[in-house]
Amino acid sequence: MSKFCEMCGKGKAHGGCITRKGLAKKAGGIGMHVVKNVKRTFEANLQNVRINEGGTVKTVKMCVRCIRTGNFTKA
């Protein structure tokens, strides 16, 4: 099974963790400076759910946001 939500298609998102150093301008400093930018991936919160689809029971991966909506019938 892939790492995507079966209902909405949510998957990995790419981003970064920016490290800043210095005193902010409004606190009297010369401003915050970017020291490091670490690339990382944000994984979707996927859970295995057994659903009843057309009279058959199957296991799918769903993100928690889609599980909360309740637009499916649990098996």
Rank of each mutant, 00 (worst) to 15 (best):
R20V: 03
T56D: 13
A24Y: 05
K26H: 13
V64Y: 14
Q47W: 14
K21G: 08
V60P: 03
A75V: 00
V57R: 14
I51T: 06
C8H: 03
H14A: 02
E43V: 03
K39E: 15
T73S: 08
C8T: 06
E6Y: 13
F42H: 08
T41S: 12
G54L: 02
K39Q: 08
T73W: 00
E53W: 06
M1L: 07
I30V: 12
G11I: 04
M1T: 08
V60N: 05
C17D: 13
N37S: 12
V35Q: 03
T56A: 10
R65S: 15
M1F: 13
K39C: 10
I51A: 05
T59M: 07
K74T: 01
G16D: 07
I67M: 05
G31F: 00
V34S: 10
C8E: 10
T73K: 11
I51R: 04
R20M: 12
N71H: 11
M7H: 05
T19V: 13
R50T: 15
K3G: 02
L46H: 00
V38I: 12
M7F: 15
G29R: 07
N48L: 03
K61W: 03
V57H: 13
R20A: 00
T73Y: 03
G22I: 13
A27P: 02
N52C: 09
Q47K: 15
C17F: 12
K36D: 13
I18H: 14
I18L: 08
A13P: 00
T59Y: 01
H33N: 15
R20I: 01
K25F: 06
M1R: 11
E43S: 15
C5S: 05
M7R: 07
L46M: 00
M32Y: 14
L46D: 03
A24V: 08
V34W: 05
V64E: 12
T19N: 05
A13S: 11
N48I: 06
K12C: 06
I30K: 09
M32K: 02
T69Y: 11
G55N: 07
A13E: 09
A27M: 13
G9W: 01
C8P: 06
K26M: 08
G31A: 01
R40K: 13
G16F: 05
C66P: 01
E53T: 01
I18Q: 12
C8W: 07
R50P: 15
V49D: 02
C5D: 04
T59C: 10
K3N: 09
R68A: 09
T41Q: 08
C8F: 13
R65H: 10
A44D: 09
K3F: 07
